[in-house]
């Protein structure tokens, strides 16, 4: 029994081996093999419909795998799904809050489900809501809240019973940029404080880059790569320059798109972001811009981003 307990405590947070799920003719997840250590935020990155939500459902034992196996916190998803759910928290695709109940009652309800004693429940609810700046609004019906506030409350619910592992399915999806940044900060602070392992799905590359220690990229149900964000960034092979200046016209953008040394070009305010075929092409591109009347201020090399890697991985499959 002690050996079994030690195995559970020392095993990776998540280990999958050829995990697959088929819905009729559609293969939602295809042979996922993955190992996620404890205590980190793992980002599961992929476009819509790539198999992220299916993976969470399989790991929580809400769906049965068509083939392959998975262990979460040392428990088999096929035989010990209840033990997994007892030790996990989840914010799924929908925040799943009871809108006819107030914020405190939403948490209290789940506290009852986890059989937390009344006093501990109250103290924990106060602690979490205070950390998320929601304590003053605890008696308000959730129905009238903004999406950002609901997501925060759902995160509090996921952390209520001090789980070892939390699944967050696109927690910032549908939020405005300011709410998303706030939620990301709260999430980062809370998870660090609670020392919890986080399995976070997102299609927001910046989010994954900012929050996660390890990132897995999934596309069409297949895992393409698993690496730390920095290592993924280094995989970007396309030289990129950022040109800052004034007087950009549509004619200049057309010229850039037609230029043989340019892979892609886009404007972001006063900044032109250009991916080049070769680093040496920068001089001819700049010269062409200036000849068309562009007022050049700065040219600088830019590191490739996770976005580049993600796109190149997706493109490679196509």
């Amino acid at each position: 029994m002690l050996t079994s307990l030690r195995d559970h405590l020392t095993s990776p947070a998540i280990r999958t081996d050829g995990l697959s799920r088929q819905f009729g003719a559609v293969c939602a997840l295809d042979g996922l093999s993955l190992e996620i250590p404890r205590g980190i935020i793992f980002g599961f990155l992929g476009p819509n419909g790539s198999g992220k939500t299916t993976t969470i459902r399989l790991l929580l034992g809400l769906l049965e795998a068509t083939s392959g196996s998975a262990e979460v916190l040392g428990y088999d998803t096929r035989t010990d799904a209840t033990a997994i759910r007892e030790r996990s928290g989840a914010l799924l695709e929908h925040c799943g809050l009871y809108e006819r109940l107030n914020a405190a009652d939403n948490l209290d309800l789940y506290g009852r489900f986890w059989q937390i004693s009344r006093d501990h429940r109250r103290a924990r609810i106060r602690e979490l809501l205070s950390h998320l700046d929601l304590w003053e609004r605890r008696d308000e019906m959730v129905a009238g809240w903004s999406r950002g506030m609901k997501q925060k409350l759902a995160i509090a619910r996921a952390l209520l019973h001090r789980p070892e592992l939390v699944f967050l399915d696109e927690p910032t999806a549908g939020l405005d940029p300011i709410a998303a940044v706030t939620l990301r900060d709260d999430l980062s602070r809370l998870t660090a404080r609670e020392g919890v392992t986080v399995f976070l799905t997102t299609h927001n590359l910046a989010e994954a880059e900012r929050l996660c220690a390890l990132v897995g990229v999934v596309h069409n149900g297949k895992l393409k790569v698993v690496a730390p964000p920095a290592q993924l960034n280094a995989m970007s092979e396309t030289p990129r320059v950022e040109i800052i200046g004034a007087g950009l016209t549509e004619a200049m953008m057309e010229m850039l798109r037609a230029h043989r040394g340019v892979v892609s070009a886009r404007a972001d305010g006063r900044c032109l972001i250009i991916d080049l075929k070769h680093a040496a092409d920068v001089s001819s591109v700049v010269a062409a811009l200036v000849s068309l009347g562009y007022h050049l201020e700065t040219v600088r090399n830019s590191a490739g981003s996770l976005e580049d890697v993600f796109h190149s991985l997706v493109e490679a499959q196509r």
Partner: peptide, 14 residues
């Protein structure tokens, strides 16, 4: 319909 069932199913309840 209110999208709360899946979260309830993801809890420890049997």
């Amino acid at each position: 319909e209110r999208h709360t069932l899946e979260t309830l199913l993801a809890s420890c309840l049997s």
